[in-house]
C-alpha cells in the first residue's frame, strides 16, 4: 500500500494541521478580496493556490513509501541544480563537467537508498575535490577555470549536498516510537512557517532593514516576529520529535535563524548574478529553489544534531 493512513499518528495530525492552515488562509484571502480588492490580495490568492498544490505533492511524496520519498528529494535536487547551473552562467565548454554534476545526484541518492552512511557522507566532498577538477582539466577549454569550478562546486553543495541531507533524515535516523519521516515533516514545516511568518510580520510591522545590501525586503521586525512565532509553533508541533520543551525551543530557534540566513544566502547569490528568481516553475513563488532556499543551510546541521544526540 502506498499511503498508510492512521489518524492517531503524529504525521497525520500534522497533515490535518497543514490543511486547516490552508483552508484558513484561503478563506481569509477570499473575504479580504470581497471587502477590499487590491493587487496584494490577488498576489496572495495566487500564492495560496500554489501552496495547495505544493502541499498535496509534498505530503504525497513524504507519506508514500521510502523509495518514492527519496526519488522525490532526488528530483528536487535535480531541478534545483538545473536552476542554479543555468543561472550562474557557467562556460558551456565545461558541459561534460556539468553533466557529471547531474550524475552525482544519482550516485548520492543511490548510496542513501542503499543505506551506506560513510559512502553517502564522503561522496560529494570527494566528488568536488577529485572528480570535478579532473574532468574540467581534461576538457579542452582554457578560459574561466576558477570561475566555472567555484560555480559548479557551489551548485553541487547547495543543490545536492544540502538537499540530500533531507533524505539522510529518513534513512539514517531511527527513532523508537516515531516514524522516521516525522523529523523531515517537522523541519520542512517549520522552515516554511518561518518564511511565511517573516513575510507576514515584515509586511505589517516592517520598518528597519536588517540586511540592506543583500535583501532589502527583509526587516528586523519580520525576522524577530518569525523567530518568535516559529519557536512557539515548533513547541506546539513538538509531538513530531523526541525532544522535551527546552530542547524544542533551542532547535526551533536554530531553525528560524539558520532558515533566515539560508534565505539571505541565496538572495545574495541571486543579487550577484542579477536575477530576482531562479525560475518561473511555481506560480507566485518563482523557481523550486526559491521556495526551498531557507532549507539550504539548516538541513545538514539539523541532521547532525539528531545523529549525534541519538549516538550519545
Amino acid at each position: 500500500m502506498i499511503l498508510d493512513i492512521d489518524f492517531s499518528s503524529p504525521n497525520n495530525l500534522l497533515v490535518l494541521i497543514i490543511f486547516m492552515i490552508l483552508i484558513l488562509a484561503s478563506s481569509v484571502f477570499f473575504i479580504w478580496k470581497r471587502i477590499q480588492p487590491n493587487a496584494l490580495v490577488d498576489q496572495m490568492i495566487k500564492t495560496t493556490q500554489s501552496w495547495w498544490v505544493m502541499c498535496f505533492v509534498f505530503l504525497f511524496a513524504i507519506l508514500s513509501n521510502t523509495v518514492i520519498t527519496i526519488l522525490a528529494i532526488a528530483l528536487l535536487s535535480f531541478v534545483a541544480l538545473r536552476e542554479l547551473v543555468s543561472a550562474l552562467n557557467i562556460n558551456i565548454d565545461y558541459r561534460s563537467s556539468v553533466f557529471l554534476c547531474y550524475l552525482s545526484i544519482f550516485f548520492q541518492y543511490f548510496f542513501i537508498y542503499k543505506g551506506w552512511f560513510i559512502e553517502a557522507i564522503i561522496f560529494l566532498p570527494l566528488f568536488i575535490l577529485v572528480i570535478l577538477p579532473c574532468s574540467m582539466i581534461i576538457s579542452t577549454c582554457r578560459k574561466g577555470f576558477l570561475r566555472s569550478y567555484s560555480f559548479l562546486s557551489i551548485s553541487v553543495i547547495l543543490a545536492v549536498y544540502s538537499i540530500s541531507h533531507l533524505a539522510f533524515l529518513i534513512t539514517f535516523i531511527h527513532l523508537d516510537n516515531l516514524s522516521s519521516k516525522s523529523l523531515l515533516l517537522f523541519l520542512i514545516f517549520l522552515t516554511q512557517i518561518n518564511d511565511i511568518m517573516q513575510f507576514i510580520f515584515g509586511k505589517i510591522f516592517g520598518r528597519n532593514k536588517i540586511l540592506p545590501y543583500v535583501s532589502p525586503n527583509k526587516t528586523w521586525e519580520g525576522f524577530l516576529g518569525g523567530l518568535l512565532s516559529t519557536t512557539i509553533i515548533g513547541c506546539l508541533i513538538g509531538f513530531l520529535t523526541p525532544f522535551n520543551y527546552y530542547e524544542l525551543i533551542v532547535v526551533s530557534t536554530i531553525i528560524a535563524v539558520l532558515g533566515f540566513l539560508g534565505d539571505s544566502f541565496l538572495s545574495a547569490i541571486k543579487r550577484d548574478v542579477g536575477v530576482k528568481d531562479l525560475g518561473v516553475s511555481i506560480s507566485g513563488h518563482g523557481g523550486f529553489f526559491d521556495r526551498i532556499d531557507s532549507l539550504v543551510i539548516i538541513s545538514a546541521p539539523f541532521f547532525y544534531i539528531f545523529y549525534f544526540l541519538l549516538e550519545l
Binding site: 538545473r82 536552476e83 547551473v85 543555468s86 543561472a87 558551456i92 558541459r95 561534460s96 556539468v98 553533466f99 547531474y102 525560475g279
Partner: peptide, 19 residues
C-alpha cells in the same frame, strides 16, 4: 534562447540547462 547550451554544434552529449 539558450537551447544551444544543451546540445552545441559538434557535441553529442545532451546536458540539461534551462532554456
Amino acid at each position: 534562447k539558450d537551447i544551444h547550451k544543451t546540445l552545441p554544434k559538434g557535441s553529442k552529449l545532451i546536458v540539461p540547462f534551462k532554456c
